[in-house]
């Protein structure tokens, strides 16, 4: 293309004419002291916060109520398995996150770099998904066993049962619980999408553009 060749000629001319700023060694030394604000750094910080959140969430679901209930209904062993499992999942994901994060290298090809960043993100995202579902299930178990065995819940059920059948009183409580859970997860998801939407939109677009060439 004639025009592109013309551009190339001009591009070289610009360089020869040294139209660029010229930094001295001292200027460069100063730059080395500055802090990076790359998206990888942001993703790392946010991922750590997320992991911390997921860990706390994992610990929080094992409330005293939950422990007492599982004991009462003889689910001690199940509880132990769930707890061990949650810690195993936690260590697995922290290890995977660390490994993926370490694999991010700015000296890779653009395509590899983008893929590794997205992979690191995906690891944390998967962990969050698992922990959210896990917490929902454990909370559900706690709620159902509480309704059946906790005197406080029984009182509430009795009160509700004054204006409806006992079955409906149970259903109402479960529906209410599900509703609250859905709203909380919804809010969480929205913030999540917004945060990563802003951070990763450009990267995803560029990655897609590179990948489209493969077909």
């Amino acid at each position: 293309m004639e025009e592109l060749e013309l551009l190339k000629k001009d591009w070289r001319k610009q360089e020869r004419a040294s139209s660029f700023p010229k930094l001295t060694k001292d200027d460069i030394y100063k730059l080395l002291l500055k802090k990076s604000s790359s998206i990888v750094k942001w993703i790392f910080i946010i991922s750590l916060l997320e992991l911390a959140f997921a860990i706390v969430l994992g610990l929080m679901v094992f409330t005293d109520d939950y422990k007492q209930m599982t004991q009462t209904i003889g689910l001690n062993k199940v509880m132990l398995v769930i707890e061990v499992l949650s810690f195993a999942i936690m260590f697995f994901y922290i290890y995977k996150f660390y490994k993926n994060y370490k694999a991010i290298s700015v000296t890779d090809s653009s395509s590899d770099l983008m893929r590794n960043i997205l992979k690191t993100r995906q690891t944390v995202k998967n962990y969050i998904k698992i922990m959210l579902s896990f917490s929902a299930v454990v909370s559900m178990i706690t709620l159902i066993s509480s309704m059946l065995y906790d005197p406080r819940y029984q009182k509430l059920t009795e009160k509700l049962a004054q204006s409806m059948s006992v079955t409906w009183a149970y259903v109402l409580q479960i529906v209410f619980f599900l509703f609250i859970t859905a709203v909380l997860i919804g809010i969480f998801w929205l913030i999540y999408q917004l945060l990563y939407g802003l951070l990763l939109r450009r990267l995803k677009k560029n990655y897609k553009e590179l990948k489209q060439l493969e077909f």
């Binding site: 604000s37 790359s38 998206i39 990888v40 942001w42 700015v106 000296t107 890779d108 090809s109 653009s110 770099l113 983008m114 960043i117 951070l199 450009r202 990267l203 560029n206």
Partner: peptide, 13 residues
């Protein structure tokens, strides 16, 4: 490579 990767991927505009 590093400069382009930074511009395309790492840099937050």
């Amino acid at each position: 490579r590093v400069a382009l990767n930074t511009a395309i991927t790492l840099y937050r505009k």
